[in-house]
Design a protein around this nucleic acid. Structure first.
Lengths: 180, 180
DNA sequence: CTGAAATACTCAGTGCCCTGACTATTTGGC
DNA sequence: GCCAAATAGTCAGGGCACTGAGTATTTCAG
């Protein structure tokens, strides 16, 4: 695997000194296209772009996700919303703050538990959510167009499994036996 | 309230008008697990997390990508680096700025073309790149552990195709015929 | 009842990521 | 040679995403 890119005009000293096929320890640079993290980033950027042009310039995808959760379950607190959509406390606070400022959700202290903020969409929030739903569906069509129908299923399955597993590493499941 | 899950392949939004009850409440929420954008975001977050714990806390994944590109092709200008790793001009400028401040790369004006900044890794930059390469490989193993070897190939292929296609929409290939 | 732990949220700080406006330089048509 | 277009980079501004520290509230052991 050579992967050298020749014909560089300016003074470039290349350090791919692995002429022979020794232990192969020498290759300086790696091929990013086989790095899942790099692909994940590119995928998200691609989506961001499509969302921006096809769905909305003022309401972002995470904002829609939060709104969607609150339409399904009005009255959730911030922590639970974050759990549902996969956002940490700080990020959820920011997103909620923006939705609140724009009048798309209501945010009130829970009288039963003064620590919580209870969230529910306003009428306007519900309208925005409904409107974006249509556009989002259209965008997903375009986004997934390169994949055959059965490939899309696999696509979802593989990504979900990888993401779930990594999240699992973060929150180690409750140990059944209590340690010391 | 039923919360149905059906015909997942298209990420279509679901409109369940609760037939049974007479509350007049209409439920119109979507199942986010069938939205590629949502999955992409979760995947990237999962990767970010793993990177942070398994690879480095000071050098981020995009920084490593830039460093990697410059190790392979020292002397590139910012625009080209951005093209290689998939970052826009502004982001590349930020990342490059941080790498420069940390002394991992050198940044000099091109004497041949005063618009360009030419970038090359310093000795320290090369060392950091090499060290992170080992850790990155380990991390990728963990990240991809949930997938069987042949599934990983598919994983890369599907994501790449979707990302490439969306990027293609952004930069519409030179139209062969003059537009109207 | 009281103080410690747990919980929900806020705030400061850092970094990625984009757009749109702006500057500096080079290039190309005339 | 000159001026307009193209190109490379900077800067301001907004949004997502995380960590770590701090505040307020609730819960629970003693």
């Amino acid at each position: 695997m050579t992967w050298v890119r020749e014909d560089v005009t300016r003074g470039v000293y290349r350090q791919c000194t692995n002429e022979g096929d020794h232990t192969g320890v020498r290759m300086a640079a790696v091929d990013l296209t086989t790095h899942p993290g790099h692909l994940a980033r590119r995928l998200q950027q691609a989506h961001y772009l499509l969302w921006n042009t096809m769905v909305s310039e003022e309401t972002t995808s995470p904002q829609y996700a939060v709104l969607n959760t609150l339409v399904a379950e009005p009255g959730l607190d911030q922590r639970t919303v974050g759990e549902r959509v996969g956002l940490d406390r700080s990020t959820v606070a920011e997103v909620v703050g923006r939705l609140d400022r724009r009048g798309l959700i209501d945010k009130v202290r829970d009288p039963q538990d003064g620590r919580r903020s209870l969230l529910r969409p306003t009428d306007e929030g519900v309208r925005v959510h409904r409107r974006l739903g249509v556009r989002t569906a259209r965008m997903n069509q375009v986004f997934l167009a390169p994949l055959a129908p059965d490939e899309r299923t696999v696509f979802f399955d593989l990504i979900r499994r990888v993401a779930d597993a990594a999240e699992g590493l973060r929150n180690p499941a409750e140990p059944t036996a209590a340690p010391g």
